[in-house]
């Protein structure tokens, strides 16, 4: 019996689910949220059926499902366009954000000059910026990418700067006592210390990146979920707009989860004890 001490932190049903592996555990963890969501959708259906709401005001979930089956074949191209913009924009935000964070952290003057500008830049809404960018760089991929990057780089800069500042000063002193250069300090202590902060910022950026791309597409685009919404709206297909909303939500969650998994891969030491790797 005592060969393996039962974990007291997990309830019994959770351990049952864990027989099905990591995903079984995850399913159990999110089961309450899924149940609530299903209940809300059920109430919605009931509400629409009982009050006999006009479909161009509020369609029933069943009508939305039908719209998905009906027009679903149009979606892959739009999804691909929006996802490409979101992912490339996110990469640009990450690269620019990290570079800026390193500059701000290592040069006090840069901090005083750049930080206020960066904060001010966040007061300009993406919806205002998007049309300007269309004028300046055209309606292609670039303008969308820039909107996504501008929305995403702020949380990345802020949390990476905080991460760099959170580095243990004694650890910096230790490597300095070993004769380390500034580059060595950055490489061995400062950058690894900033990894959790960087990913926290990247998660926020990922959650907003799809919305950023959609907003940019509203202004002008050939393809993408934003333009799909505009067209649906023009033909009073509210059910299709709801389909798009659902797809945007799933896409955002997928990106968020991808970043979360990336963070685990990039900071294995944070999860070492969880897996019991090399334990005892």
């Amino acid at each position: 019996m005592a060969a393996e001490a039962p974990s007291l932190r997990r309830s019994l049903p959770a351990r049952g689910w864990r027989l099905f592996g990591r995903w079984g555990g995850a399913a159990w963890e999110y089961a309450p949220a899924l149940v609530l969501l299903a209940a809300l959708v059920g109430l919605w259906e009931l509400f629409v059926q009982v009050l006999d709401t006009r479909p161009y005001i509020l369609p029933a979930p069943s009508a939305i499902w039908e719209a998905l089956l009906d027009k679903g074949h149009l979606l892959p191209n739009h999804i691909q366009a929006t996802a490409t913009e979101a992912i490339l924009g996110l990469l640009a935000a990450a690269a620019g954000g990290v570079l800026l964070a390193v500059v701000i952290s290592s040069i006090p003057l840069a901090r005083r000059v750049l930080y206020p500008i960066i904060v001010t830049s966040q007061t300009v809404p993406a919806i205002v910026l998007a049309p300007l960018l269309m004028v300046w760089v055209g309606i292609g991929l670039e303008s969308k990418l820039i909107v996504v990057a501008l929305v995403g780089f702020f949380p990345i800069v802020v949390s990476t700067v905080d991460g760099l500042a959170s580095a243990d000063r004694d650890m910096v002193a230790l490597v300095r006592s070993m004769g380390a250069s500034r580059i060595d300090e950055l490489r061995h202590v400062l950058i690894p210390s900033a990894i959790p902060g960087f990913f926290a910022g990247l998660k926020i950026a990922a959650a907003y990146s799809v919305i950023g791309a959609v907003i940019a597409e509203w202004v002008a685009a050939k393809e993408g979920l934003g333009i799909f919404i505009i067209r649906s709206q023009a033909s009073f297909r509210i059910d299709q707009i709801f389909v798009a909303i659902g797809v945007i939500a799933l896409l955002s969650i997928a990106l968020f989860v991808a970043v979360h998994l990336l963070a685990r891969v990039a900071s294995p030491w944070k999860y070492a004890n969880e897996k019991g790797e090399n334990g005892s």
């Binding site: 243990d168 004694d170 650890m171 002193a173 230790l174 490597v175 300095r176 006592s177 070993m178 004769g179 061995h188 202590v189 690894p192 990894i195 900071s267 030491w269």
Partner: peptide, 25 residues
């Protein structure tokens, strides 16, 4: 700095390096 091998009062192992990585730092 760098003329002696210094061991501070706290062990200050780098959490992102495995044991061997810390040893060779």
């Amino acid at each position: 700095p760098g003329l002696a091998a210094y061991m501070p009062q706290k062990d200050l192992l780098l959490p992102w390096r495995k044991a061997i990585g810390n040893a060779v730092l």
